[in-house]
Write a protein that binds this DNA or RNA. Structure first.
Lengths: 195, 195
DNA sequence: CCGCACAACTTGTCACTGTCAAGATAAGGG
DNA sequence: CCCTTATCTTGACAGTGACAAGTTGTGCGG
């Protein structure tokens, strides 16, 4: 039982990140409050500043963590897909949507918000890793920069609209049927097969 | 000279909408402040409540107006395009992107925010009109619901990523070159031609 | 084993925000 | 001409993020 109240928390940084993620999920990016996060972590309102400087600092750390989970969601799909490059790229696109649906608020923080500081080295590295993953996959199927833009835009548009609850025709489908429809749509954005 | 200071403004509602739009453009959705809007309109901090009830009410009206301009941006492109349905749909897609690039903050309010009340009848009607326009155009080229989702997602993804300053390869191009690249990408999302 | 320097956290305050209640002012109809 | 009513202002309250100054614990050098 390490959860007795001590003056020095022990691992407040991690606890704040957890609390912040929960707050983000419950209240959304717009309703996010630093003091509320502190309350949830059972700590004074000024405690977060010592670990994250700013509300922006906390959200930046959260966004960086988000990009790692984003890549993990794609990797999970890729592991279950056929090993050929096209199937892998398709799996990455499905993982993109998976992530947006599973964590809509985090997704919005990462892609539709100015509340994270993208000049921060950690966040920059994390988002660059995601971008690099996409570029490598597009290169593996013989695509160029335009192809990358097409694939990315298509996956991103699907993810953003679905997680926002628009695209109701697609949102109402079962998981399998939706995967099928998404796959058909995503494949359109691919460059024509080499053969 | 009607801009002398009177107790009764005359058309405060319109003035507040203008001020709100300017504030939105300058500070973004996150930094939007009702009191700042009132200051910009030269009026007391509680004046907006009488016309819009809420901050949410003001942003809702702004979003509804945004959807009308959104359709206007598409119409402008459509008027300059060939009359056949495929060219018209492509033009609508380019207008989609035009709008997002011209008014990024408004675009984010309309598509990536919870600060507008989408159960409001005016906003609902305005956004439905935009949705209906898309559906009609997709139907005109013989497409079904999946095709509509594909086209919409592709256009939306391009618009969102470009207006957020990602997709740097595309963002650096000249207007003509970018239109060309965008057209190529958008066309991929169309269903195969009938012939 | 001691004391001291520093890190971790708290308390208090400031300017700012959105919302509500109550008052002041003007416009227009009887 | 008065009086009702819409319009706008003033004042207040709780909540927010940021800062400054205190308080408490931890661990290091001796």
């Amino acid at each position: 039982m390490t959860d007795e109240k001590r003056y020095h928390h022990g691992d407040l940084r991690a606890a704040l990140l957890d609390a912040a993620e929960a707050e983000l999920a419950e209240r959304g990016v717009e309703g996010f409050s630093l003091r509320q996060v502190a309350r949830r972590a059972g700590v004074s309102h000024a405690a977060p500043a010592h670990h994250f400087t700013d509300a922006k600092g906390l959200l930046t750390a959260l966004a960086a963590e988000g990009f790692h989970r984003f890549l993990a969601a794609q990797a999970s799909r890729e592991a279950r897909a056929a090993p050929d490059p096209r199937a892998q790229l398709l799996a990455a696109g499905l993982g993109y949507v998976d992530f947006a649906l599973a964590r809509p608020a985090l997704f919005r923080l990462m892609f539709g918000s100015d509340r994270a500081d993208f000049s921060n080295p950690d966040l920059d590295a994390a988002s660059d890793a995601a971008y690099g993953h996409l570029m490598a996959q597009v290169a593996a199927i013989g695509g160029n920069q335009t192809d990358a833009a097409a694939v990315w835009s298509c996956a991103h548009g699907l993810a953003d609209l679905l997680s926002a609850g628009r695209l109701k025709p697609l949102g109402g489908l079962s998981a399998e049927a939706r995967d099928l429809a998404l796959s058909a749509i995503l494949t359109r954005s691919f460059p024509a097969p080499a053969g």
